[in-house]
Design a protein around this nucleic acid. Structure first.
Lengths: 199, 199
DNA sequence: GGCCGTCGATTGACTGGTCAATCAGTCGGC
DNA sequence: GCCGACTGATTGACCAGTCAATCGACGGCC
C-alpha cells in the first residue's frame, strides 16, 4: 500500500502561499518566503512546482473551477433568472467570507491583473462572464428581463459590481461584517434587477 | 525669462511611458525601455523623476485629478441624479475613447492593483467612490432613488460595472467600437437606475 | 532478524542574469 | 565660466531556479 505522508507538504506549500501572497502580493513575495511560511526547505517548492508562477496558477485554477461549476450548476436549476443571479452573487460572496485570503489573491493577482497573470487565464475568466450572460439571455427570452440590454453587457456589469464590492472589503474601503455580506448579496441583485429608481 | 525647451523632454518621457506601460505592463518594462521609446538617454529619466514608480505616479495623479474634478463638477449642476450618473459614466467612457492606453495603464496598474501601487493612492480612489456615493445619497433625499440601498454600495456597484466594461474593452473580451462606447454609457445608467426587469 | 540497495522526499548553498539607481562627466546657452 | 540639461557605463542588490548531497521508508534477500 502506498504510504500517505502524515502531512501533505504540497498542500502545506499551497496554503502557505495563499497567506504570503495575500499579505505581500505575488511580486513582492520571494520563493523563500513561501518556503519559510510553510516550514519547508526552499528547494521543496521546486520539487512540487515548476516555478513560482505555477503555485499561483494552481491556486487560481483550483478555485475558479469551483466558481464555474457553481454558476453552470445554478443555471441548470429551474429557478427564476433573478434567483439564479442571486445564487451566483451568494456563491461569490460566500467564497470570500469562507476564505478571504484566497479570494484576495485570486482577484488581486489574477482576475484584475489581466496584463500579467490573468492573460493566461482569460479563457476561463471569460467563460464565467459567458455563463452569467447565458442566464441573462434566457431570462430575456422568457420575458423576465428587458431585452434591450446585451446579455454580455449585463453580465459584465453584474460581475463587475460584485468584484468591486469584494475589492472594497479587501482594501477596507467599505465595512465587512457578516451582515454586510448578506446585505450585499441581496443589494447587488436588487440593484441590477430592479434598479435604483423607485418602482 | 526661463527658457522653454523646444521639445519638452519630460512630457516626452511621460508619453513614452504610457505607451510602454500599456504594451508590456509596469513590472515588465525596464527604465531603459521608457528611455528608448522616448528617444532619450537612460539617465534623463532620473533627471526628471526620482524613480520608475514616480513616473507611474505622475501619470495616475495627472489623470485621476481630472476625473475627480469632473465628478465633483457634475455634482454641482442642477441635473437629476440620473443625469449626473450618466455624466460620470460618459466622462469615464470618453476618457477611454480619447486615450485608451493611458486609461489601460491607470486601471490595470493602479486602480485594480490596490496591493502594490494602488495602495498609495487608495485615498484618491476612495474619494471618487465617495463623490459618486454623494450623488446617490442626494438622489435618495430628493426621493429620486430608493433609500434601502446604502449609497456607498450603490456607488461601488456603479463604478465597478463601468470599470469592468473598460476591462472588457482593454482585454478584447467585448467589442469596442464608437457605437459600443455610446451604448455602454446609456446601458450602465439604465441598468443601475431602472434595473434589468421590465417596468 | 539483520543487511543493503533503491528511490522519492527533502535540504539549502550557490549561480547567473536582471535591472534600478548612481555618478562622473560632456555639451551648449547665457 | 557657470549652470542646468543631458549622456550612458557601471555598480550593487536581489532573487528565481539549479543541483549535489542527505535522509529515511520500504522491500528483497540471506
Amino acid at each position: 500500500m502506498a504510504k500517505a505522508p502524515p502531512v501533505d507538504k504540497r498542500r502545506q506549500i499551497l496554503d502557505a502561499a495563499i497567506r504570503v501572497f495575500a499579505r505581500q502580493g505575488f511580486h513582492a513575495t520571494r520563493v523563500s518566503d513561501i518556503a519559510d511560511e510553510a516550514g519547508v526547505a526552499y528547494g521543496l517548492v521546486y520539487h512540487y512546482f515548476r516555478s513560482k508562477d505555477e503555485v499561483l496558477n494552481e491556486l487560481f485554477v483550483e478555485r475558479w473551477s469551483l466558481l464555474l461549476s457553481a454558476i453552470e450548476e445554478t443555471d441548470r436549476t429551474g429557478e427564476t433568472p433573478r434567483e439564479k443571479l442571486g445564487a451566483v452573487a451568494a456563491f461569490i460572496v460566500d467564497s470570500y467570507r469562507h476564505d478571504p485570503e484566497l479570494m484576495k489573491v485570486i482577484i488581486v493577482e489574477v482576475t484584475r491583473a489581466a496584463n500579467s497573470f490573468g492573460r493566461t487565464h482569460l479563457p476561463e475568466i471569460r467563460r464565467a462572464y459567458q455563463s452569467i450572460a447565458k442566464i441573462v439571455e434566457d431570462g430575456q427570452k422568457a420575458g423576465a428581463f428587458r431585452d434591450d440590454v446585451a446579455p454580455m453587457f449585463a453580465s459584465m456589469s453584474f460581475y463587475g459590481a460584485i468584484e468591486q464590492l469584494l475589492s472594497g472589503w479587501i482594501f477596507d474601503v467599505i465595512p465587512a461584517s457578516d451582515t454586510d455580506f448578506d446585505q450585499a448579496k441581496e443589494l447587488v441583485v436588487t440593484t441590477i434587477c430592479d434598479g435604483l429608481e423607485p418602482r
